[in-house]
């Protein structure tokens, strides 16, 4: 185990518990995510990974425990979801949640929208600053789309519903980047993709990481985790059962048992 560098912690949770009417989806979870790194969470199906993200974004109320974020130690459990985005967290969804009838470009613009100053008054009066802000935002959005090669940008005026499955997953990531977060949460970014596409997304993730973003991702695909993650957490039954480098974690007896045990049960 690496020693936790206190100054460098971006997300920290302690004793986090979530009880769904008897099902302990998250059980007394402690973990710390380091700034500037790509961290991965692995774990068998139903081990509470997505629930953890939902708790961090305050889509669910936690049963107990706390989650603090950033250098100011903001308590996320007390903030409404939209403020959590504003303090610097953005996430993707395992079950894609794009704005399907909006264009690709507009999806990205939504990612940035809470940082724009124009509101009701600006909409009606359209002052010069609002128009300029709009243009700048558009320019910025195009830049973000171009991070993904030509795939998204060539579709920028099409509705998101016309994107292919893999591009929809990229779109989700692009939308996250657009909100300029300090920490990006990716929920299974390559689920359902073929190996070629997976390799491409790995590159995309690394590119975003190089651009200075901290990333926490959930993934079942071990090639991806091995390829990008500097630090790995393993979950089972809502608790952290191991952490460390990928090699250590993947050989950790508790992890092996969690995966094999589950598989043995299935067979």
């Amino acid at each position: 185990m690496e020693p936790a560098d206190l100054d460098n912690t971006i997300l920290k949770c302690q004793g986090l518990t979530k009880n769904f009417g008897g099902v302990l989806a998250i059980n007394n979870l402690d973990l710390e995510v380091q700034k500037g790194k790509i961290t991965a969470i692995i774990g068998p199906n139903g081990s509470g990974k997505t629930t953890f993200f939902n708790l961090v974004m305050h889509l669910y109320d936690a049963t107990s425990g706390q989650v603090v974020f950033g250098t100011e130690n903001t308590n996320l459990l007390e903030l409404p979801t939209h403020s959590i985005n504003r303090v610097g967290l953005a996430r993707t969804f395992q079950t894609l949640r794009l704005f399907l009838n909006l264009t690709v470009l507009e999806n990205v613009l939504i990612g940035m929208s809470s940082q724009l100053n124009s509101g009701f008054g600006a909409a009606l009066i359209k002052p010069k600053w609002a128009r300029e802000e709009d243009k700048l935002a558009e320019e910025k959005a195009l830049e973000i789309l171009s991070l993904f090669g030509s795939r998204l940008i060539s579709m920028c005026n099409e509705p998101a519903s016309s994107l292919s499955y893999a591009n929809r997953r990229r779109m989700e990531i692009a939308r996250c980047v657009a909100s300029q977060p300090k920490l990006i949460l990716l929920d299974e970014p390559v689920a359902g993709m073929n190996p070629t596409e997976t390799r491409e997304v790995i590159k995309d993730i690394q590119k975003i990481h190089e651009a200075g973003h901290t990333i926490l991702l959930i993934e079942h695909d071990m090639t991806l985790v091995e390829g990008v993650a500097e630090h790995v957490f393993a979950f089972d039954h809502g608790s952290k059962i191991a952490e460390g480098q990928f090699k250590e974690v993947s050989n950790h007896p508790a992890v092996v048992e969690a995966y094999l045990g589950k598989q043995a049960l299935k067979q």
Binding site: M57, L59, P80, T81, H82, S83, I84, N85, R86, A90, R91, F93, R97, L98, F99, L100, N101, L102, E106, I110, G111, S113, S114, Q115, R175, S179
Partner: peptide
């Protein structure tokens, strides 16, 4: 429109729904 399309995602992107 974002709220109309996907309320949860809208929330997660800083929109005060």
């Amino acid at each position: 429109e974002a709220i109309r399309e996907e309320e949860i995602a809208a929330k997660c992107f800083g929109i005060n729904v």
